[in-house]
Design a protein around this nucleic acid. Structure first.
Lengths: 334, 334
DNA sequence: CTGTTAGCGCCTTCAT
DNA sequence: ATGAAGGCGCTAACAG
């Protein structure tokens, strides 16, 4: 039923080793023989079995990617970067959603390893000791992508979240704002939550301003929670003149809550955040934000992984990609 | 170095057949033996090799998904539906971006087949004879997802694009609009382009209104092209009172172009479209649109594929999911 | 340049 | 309930 390398060998009148050679582009084959084999392949409609090949060669040319949520545009963009580079190096991608749930993350890491992926990319989650433990049992390289472990022992590609937040808030400060509220992510999240909050804090402290409890709200990264937080700030006796959001999506929610309340952005309240998702330039006013190079994070981490899989030497296995303030229309000097 | 089923067998003092049985949950194993084996597995840190298993059993429990662009939120949402159901049935997903390029689509279909996936999901592309040809060489089931072939010979899951457009434009008509412009996708695209344009045409004709050439612009699905098209309509001597866009993203561009021109939506111009991406409720005014059940399209197509892979009987292998008008704030009666 | 021969790690009858 | 043995389709030395 299914045609194998053996059938091709017989059809072409050569040994299966020779067929294997031409299929794998081994130069040690006489052009004439090569031609015969190709013809036989064509005639029979032979398609190499990658599973058998994987078993024999111990390489599958596929890498596993665990992603928190593929329908989140941020991760989708990172995944795009991964895919493009993987494709460039002739790797395929097994994508596993893990819903940010630790047990599920551990579970998919294991199935991926069972599938004998040549490498593993762990995207954007919290990295616990349990994760580290799972990674340690891996005989193939692992790189963290859009996240990092606390101790920085693993290869990783990420941005400096604390620095990005610091820069954003410093910019607001430079524009003269003194009452700057923050919509934070959960402090359990080391990157988008804790680190960005720390950056906010450091910027204020550097400017000699005390952090005021009532000016910090924790959101869940969604649009609605941004609206909610902004609504709360608007109700304060002393309303902030600027809102710094840990993420763009919450910032956009904040902008709309402000507008829905009859106020103007940035005239009445400035809004700034981090991420630079596509939507940031698709709202009015367009959102001033700190760009996080999502695509590049994916691309660079995949590139790093190829080097690791290839046992190439890598100079720096913890890479921090630069961020950049994108000035648009949602902030103004006060 | 790597521990195999054979090592476990020796460690547990049984044969590899027995180990295989416990790993595969075969009931024909004495509980006591099972326990011994589990302990040996634990002690040795044994991890079954899915590649070897795949070769021996001729099943890989993975399905291939070819996706036009993972960073497009529409496809990402469909992919989410696929992933969730795949996960439920213990399948993994190999995701391949194909950039809407035919040669690349054909290529990835072939690599996926080489990888011995148990089934194939082809998402949202144009299905040519060449595709059909490639699918025909597949020994595993294929389902089209968010697309369909012209002759409807393949299993597929999609919405009725023509009907959705017809319903949208009919709604605009019901609101009293007579000069309704359309921002279309390319007519080469059978679903988002051609079919939606046909629906627009049929609705107008049903109402006894002739389609006017100058009221139709072809966009490329991006925000900017929506802005551009709307800008063009605004410059017309007789400006349309409503704009129907083939997709939400272009509609949002249109809304902003209208607003940037100092006009109001919906007071001056109504805007309506198809898709219902998340962003549709994250703009002001919120977008009235026809919801396309993206997640469900993915989920249903994956479910259909599981049935096919399982050789279950399926009553209907061309499924058309219902669409629904979502009334929000971007249209009003005139 | 080409063929022979072992496996790769596991599943699966077929016996026992 | 368990074991023995023969592949699954291919790669990778090793000869020649």
């Amino acid at each position: 039923m299914t045609v194998t390398i053996y059938d091709v060998a017989r059809e072409a009148g050569v040994s299966m080793a020779t067929v294997s050679r031409v299929v794998n582009n081994n130069p040690n084959v006489k052009p004439q023989t090569r031609k015969k084999v190709f013809e036989a392949i064509e005639r029979l409609g032979y398609r190499p079995n990658a599973v058998a090949r994987g078993l024999a060669s111990k390489k599958t040319t596929t890498v596993g990617v665990v992603i928190p949520d593929i329908s989140n545009p941020i991760f989708a963009e990172v995944a795009r970067g991964i895919e493009d580079i993987a494709n460039m190096y002739h790797y395929n991608i097994i994508l596993c959603n893990a819903d940010k749930r630790k047990e599920k993350e551990i579970r998919v890491i294991n199935t991926l390893l069972e599938k004998q992926v040549d490498g593993l990319l762990f995207m954007g989650g919290i990295v616990t000791d349990e994760h580290l433990q799972a990674f340690k049992t891996s005989s193939v390289p692992v790189v963290l992508c859009a996240t990092a472990d606390e101790k920085k022992t693993m290869p990783s590609v990420d941005i400096d979240h604390e620095g990005a937040a610091f820069d954003a808030v410093s910019e607001l400060l430079r524009e003269g704002h003194r009452d700057i509220a923050m919509i934070s992510g959960t402090l359990q999240d080391p990157a988008n939550g804790y680190a960005r909050y720390q950056g906010y804090k450091r910027a204020l402290e550097t400017a000699g301003i005390a952090v005021r409890e009532e000016l910090v709200r924790v959101g869940n990264y969604r649009y609605e929670s941004g609206m909610e937080a902004a609504g709360y700030f608007l109700g304060l006796a002393k309303r902030p003149t600027a809102i710094f959001s840990a993420t763009d999506e919450m910032a956009i929610g904040a902008i709309h809550a402000i507008q829905d309340a009859g106020l103007k952005v940035p005239d009445d309240v400035s809004v700034m955040s981090i991420d630079n998702i596509r939507m940031a330039s698709m709202v009015r006013p367009q959102l001033t934000t700190v760009a996080q190079p999502m695509y590049d994070i994916g691309a660079v981490s995949m590139r790093l992984l190829t080097k690791l899989m290839n046992k190439d030497s890598v100079e720096q296995s913890q890479v921090v990609l630069p961020h950049e303030i994108i000035h648009r229309k949602s902030t103004r000097s006060v």
